[in-house]
Design a protein around this nucleic acid. Structure first.
Lengths: 204, 204
DNA sequence: TGACACATACCGACTGGTTGGTATTTATAA
DNA sequence: TTATAAATACCAACCAGTCGGTATGTGTCA
């Protein structure tokens, strides 16, 4: 029975915060250690290198977020389209607080490392792709249930939702707040409703 | 009559390439100098600091891209909706070659600097916003011409197109190629056609 | 025209501090 | 006792930025 969290976990949690705030390159090992309240010796005991921590952080992010979204209430809907729309609404609802709190670790990291650090890039890609895959299942079910014959694939629509969210995060960072991001998510919501001929109250 | 481009221009052009490849923090002043073929003395003669160069690079980016899009053929359409759809098609068409060649400098930079470097963030925001403003004009004209009463604003749709593109760039970086980005742009094209009740051949 | 004053553009060795990483030592638990 | 976890001390490479100096205009006035 541990009294405090082990150094490895504290370092990973610190990485999620600091890298989302500052980016990967600008975040130093010393910053990570002091934020986690551990020493450099502990850092290099658990991680071979800074890049090794980045891969572990991306995998940690995938674990944390998949648990977070698995516990979200939108899964309770019986209709798969309601689950998809519930997911979008949930993504909009959590756009609150500081920008670093609702933005995506792997989306931020992959921008910096995609060319020079293929292993980190692959870990980021795996995190995004596995999250999109959970959505893809509901989209596929919705297509079958409504018996439509779309010109698009469920996989491409699932990834498109991630593109909109990642882009919305960039706008939020440029504008300094989540308001503009929420508007983009509204457009995404409207798009999906149009694709499925979903009834729209006062909309065009 | 100059024989070669002056050091300042060569440094700015080198910044567009290197920062899109590596990100801002990972790009060193020495790298910029050797890529531009100038010395460190020349760098600090023209720029007060590395941050000062970043602001200049963001402004340079705004200048270069606004000239690039102003010269694009889609402006020739008489109908404003055709211009908007022509813009989207053009954005899709230029998704070619290395990832660093078609991605956005300011979208990449703002992810790293939004918190610690407000002046760079503002320069990035200005670049994105001014580009979106050129689109907004055509969207507004299309809404008026077709006499529709949308639940969305032209400004938010213009920014949404930028969000989709920025997010598509992130997916392209994670996947290592432009294919997935093109699919997201296809969704954006489909969305705008649906918003304007545009005829769709075999689409849902 | 030519000489002087001054400004702009550029050079590259150097510095103080920082960085990722290593070597060694100490504590803890099975 | 032994393996794992974590702390301390340290290093070589690297980084942004500095500084003294050179080369090349450019304006001015006799």
């Amino acid at each position: 029975m541990k009294k405090t969290a082990p150094a490895k976990d504290k370092l990973l949690d610190a990485a999620l915060q600091l890298i989302r705030q500052q980016g990967y390159s600008a975040t130093t090992v010393d910053q990570l250690c002091s934020a986690a309240g551990v020493t450099k010796g502990a850092f290099f005991h658990h991680f071979k290198s800074k890049d090794d921590l980045a891969v572990a952080a991306a995998n940690h992010w995938a674990t944390v977020t998949s648990a977070f979204f698995a516990a979200a209430p939108y899964h309770q809907h019986a209709d798969p389209l309601d689950r998809v729309l519930g997911y979008i609404a949930f993504r909009k609802a959590i756009l609150q607080g500081d920008v670093a709190e609702f933005t995506c670790l792997v989306g931020t990291m992959v921008q910096e490392v995609y060319d020079a650090h293929p292993t980190i890039r692959d870990a980021c890609n795996a995190s995004i792709s596995s999250h999109a895959a959970t959505l893809e299942a509901d989209i596929t079910a919705a297509v079958e249930r409504l018996a439509i014959k779309p010109a698009w694939t469920a996989a491409s629509l699932a990834l498109h939702t991630q593109a909109v969210l990642q882009g919305a995060f960039i706008l939020a960072k440029a504008r300094g707040g989540p308001a503009i991001a929420a508007e983009s998510v509204d457009h995404l919501d409207r798009y999906i409703k149009l694709l499925f001929d979903h009834k729209q109250p006062q909309d065009n």
